[in-house]
Design a protein around this nucleic acid. Structure first.
Lengths: 197, 197
DNA sequence: CGCGACGTTGATTTGCCTCAACGATTGTGG
DNA sequence: CCACAATCGTTGAGGCAAATCAACGTCGCG
């Protein structure tokens, strides 16, 4: 089912990056499926196959990894006009390493690997677009990694809230702690300490 | 200058992933330049513009970030048939965040952003190849990040030497410590402890 | 040969974890 | 709609892994 109002947002996103004919816009709108995800529901689940790639129309997701000790590690938060997916399993067909859970009622466009492959054959221009999008994702993750290994928790905390003003109103503090790589208790103590200065 | 013996290795790498005509192989060989990098010399330097992307024909590199406190953090080691570059600055024209230093006398093929752009226009098939290569790099970095935040140092150490047997003969121990995110003293102590068990 | 790079060991400090308890807020089923 | 449970954030005490600071032996290279 295609919702033309919502699909317009995805088409606009793509059309602002490459030029699209009307026919191509139609192919894109048909390849993607709209999906409503309720708060706390999962868009992607770890250790499951059959993964999808999603474009966020509305809402917020936390994308996280559940390690062998049962601890959760937030890889990133995804907002409007971001892509959500486990790049590894989407392209390999293997089980997902990641979970993506809605932090509020959300709407996304999803596509599976087969449909995406077909779409890329129909519109070769998309190869370039998705190459550039993937490069951007790699750039962002590289910066996140280097900041994680080189900066202390307070510096990483300030970088996050500066890059995403208002995130503390949207995301529970213990999930921000998980993004920063510390326990909720530690973040609580750190914020208390920051107030003293 | 094109060295046909060395360029064969790059062409073989590409031809094993997409089908190439003779004409296309020639275009690729002409777009890349061969470069000999002596041990300890830099292929890429932090805070410099004019970056390149390189394909390693022979040798080894360490790719690292120098933080504001002067500490070095190894992002990855690059071996034969790997790509080396700072994805962020190569595509944006900004200053490099990374250094790439040869750990032994090495040979690479390099390309600058302008020549790569032109090559991609001449051989649109390469768009798909580089999209897939970038996806692979993103997958590797995502796994590295998640392992770094979820596993302890001993586990990360074992993962590294299992994935790269013999790396300890090639890479000084303090650089392995840097890759693992600890100081050389800590790695020395950890290895001593491992021998006791 | 001599110096610098590398690795090791020791003593001490530090930042975050662990375990535990508790109040406030949110959400839910009867 | 209320009562109770679950979730969330805070605070405290104690522990631990790695950092820090320092000293020293070895090796390889210029």
């Amino acid at each position: 089912m295609i919702d033309t109002n919502f699909s317009k947002q995805l088409i606009d996103y793509i059309a602002s990056r490459i030029s699209l004919s009307l026919e191509e816009s139609k192919l894109i709108a048909e390849a993607y499926s709209i999906l409503h995800v309720k708060k706390k529901d999962y868009l992607i689940s770890q250790d499951k196959a059959g993964n999808i790639e999603a474009f966020v129309i509305m809402g917020t997701f936390r994308v996280f990894y559940n390690d062998s000790k049962g601890l959760e590690h937030v890889l990133y938060f995804a907002f409007k006009d971001w892509w959500v997916g486990d790049i590894a399993s989407f392209n390999s067909g293997e089980l997902s390493m990641l979970n993506a859970q809605a932090l509020e009622d959300s709407i996304v466009f999803t596509i599976d690997p087969i449909k995406k492959e077909k779409l890329l054959e129909q519109i070769p221009q998309l190869e370039k677009l998705f190459r550039i999008i993937t490069q951007k994702h790699l750039t962002v993750l590289q910066k996140r990694f280097l900041l994680t290994v080189s900066a202390n928790v307070a510096e990483r905390y300030h970088e996050l809230i500066q890059r995403h003003p208002g995130i503390e109103q949207l995301v529970p503090q213990h999930q921000i702690a998980s993004y920063l790589g510390i326990l909720p208790e530690s973040l609580s103590r750190m914020k208390k300490q920051l107030l003293k200065d």
